[in-house]
Design a protein around this nucleic acid. Sequence first.
DNA 1: GCAAGGTC
Length: 681
Amino acid sequence: MILIIAEKPNVARKIAGALAEGRPVKKSLFGVPYYEFFRDGKKLIVAPAVGHLYGLAPKQDFFGYPIFDIEWVPVYIAEKGKEYAKDYIKLLSVLAKRVKGFVVACDYDTEGEVIGYTALKYACGVDPGIAKRMKFSALTKRDLVKAWHNLEPTINFGMANAGIARHVLDWYWGVNLSRALTHAIKRASGKWIVLSTGRVQGPTLKFLVEREREIQNFVPKPYWVIKLIFEKNGQKFIANYEKDKVWDENEARRIVLEAKKGPVRVAGIDVKRQKRNPPVPFDLGTLQREAYSAFGFSPKKTLDLAQNLYEKGFSSYPRTESQKLPKNLNFRYIIQSLAKMPQYRPYAHILLGMPELKPVEGKKEDPAHPAIYPTGEVPRPGDLTKDEEKLYDMIVRRFLALFMEPAVRESVKVTIRAGPHNFILSGGRTVKEGWLAVYGKYVKFEEVTLPTFLVGEKVRVLQIKREKKKTKPPARYSPAAVIKKMEDLGLGTKATRAQILETLYQRGYIEGKKSIKVTPLGMKVIETLEKYVPEIISVELTREFEKKMELIMQGKLTKEEVIEEAKQKLIKILEEFKKKELEIGLELAKIVIGEDKVEKPLVVGKCPKCGGDLIVKYNKKTGKRFIGCSNWPKCDVTYPILQRGEIIPTGRTCCNGAPVVIVKDGKEKRVICLDMNCKEW
DNA sequence: GCAAGGTC
């Protein structure tokens, strides 16, 4: 018997369906489905993981930094809310005892390889070296059977190692710097406020901060627009001066005067017809953007709704980057099913009358999943929530649109010559609806139909005027625009971008549902990181990780070398950070709890032992004050001090470098050397 | 208490 491990339940089912001779037997243990069947006289079992079953966690219960001592543990131990994974691990460990051989059939990428590797090592309790690998790039029967006949002799250790390195590096950088920030603010304010950053959070917050700075530094510049308003057939039209901005008021005034002198005639008419092809199939990012613009759904909400639709069986797997549909998908069947819903019936019928059903496709591809499409399962009333229904409607209409004829748009440009100056009147209309019939409600095209003009025609001018305007600062990002920018920069993945944006909200770094504004805390965190750890907010860190992972995959670097290098680098960075921890914490605390509420420690002099600041401190238990070194606990220098009176530093030192201070109590002033053994005492 | 990455 051989155990085939899939990345997720749905894929386990597909693999079983493809490889079984006859129907696979669906079984279930601990509530997790798996499949048994025969092929070539051998009994095979296919069982699923649920994504990562194991994650990294510190070996010791210690919340300081730096921390590098970590290990793989089941995800339900490493993270809250992952209890469901427990049953999957239990299933694999039970099945592992029944079988002789193992095959990893996770997605063929670094994460898939890590999922397979850790499942073998920790859940099945076997050496990952004994497993074979099914390598496929589509979940069709053809591809799966081919992969089965061409099994790789082992899993791809280069990929597994690269993936493991990615996990460790992200953990080292992210957890250590998040702890450093959190500790800094705790030390300065006494308040527990979780701050975080990471390879993806950092650069994402950074580009939001950059936009915020552009807005803050923006100086509006005046300019003038010039309009020619005229009448034709009792209708008013506005033509705009050919330069859309005139920067000089005198020039604008002159243009208006010259234009007013006339004559004013139609000088040219330019009519263009343009074919507009249907939009491409939905990948997750495009769906998130479209749902945001149509319904105002956040990217996270769209992913959740799409996941619901997927789990209920109405649409395909949502976490995809593909803009292509599977070649062997039964389009006719799906469209026939959609025709059962009256709102789609007319369009479905048009399509079913076509000799060939050929959808448009986009450029992007995804090795594991096709673009998002409706399955053809028809929801009954009550199956979907209102929001699910909205998203479903968008998915169905997009799908139907893929097969429809292009739309044709006509644009008209009328040039009006007033004296020596040209003004432009533009119009646009849809000449042939095509796919817009079904999807038009989600695309906005302006419909401006113009009357017929003739070249040379005289124009009845009502008014020629200049209007003063001001340039506007760049717009803030919307959640959907953030996701797009992250995609463009290669930050995060289709499955994580929405979640990472949510984390930035949770941390109080950003606010605003539609228009994202960076809070003063968010600005300060970036400012701090720019100063002390510029790496973590740079997109280059991601690029560097990618390069290192590539070298690990090729066997040119070991994961141990890469991990060790990161560790050494971080030790240095964190050491520097720790030295400045209080200073950094004070800056952050000022913003979170208000400047006046942060007590700046009074520096009375330099520590004779380590050169740190000697500051007034308070004993936590007794509340009594004393003078101590700011580098505590590394440096243990302390001095007692009178409990009453204002302490005023003098800048002078006395015995063994101990500072001299003035203690002023009412009218009484005493000059004191802090050394207890000083004669002054 | 912290990351980013899979997934329900």
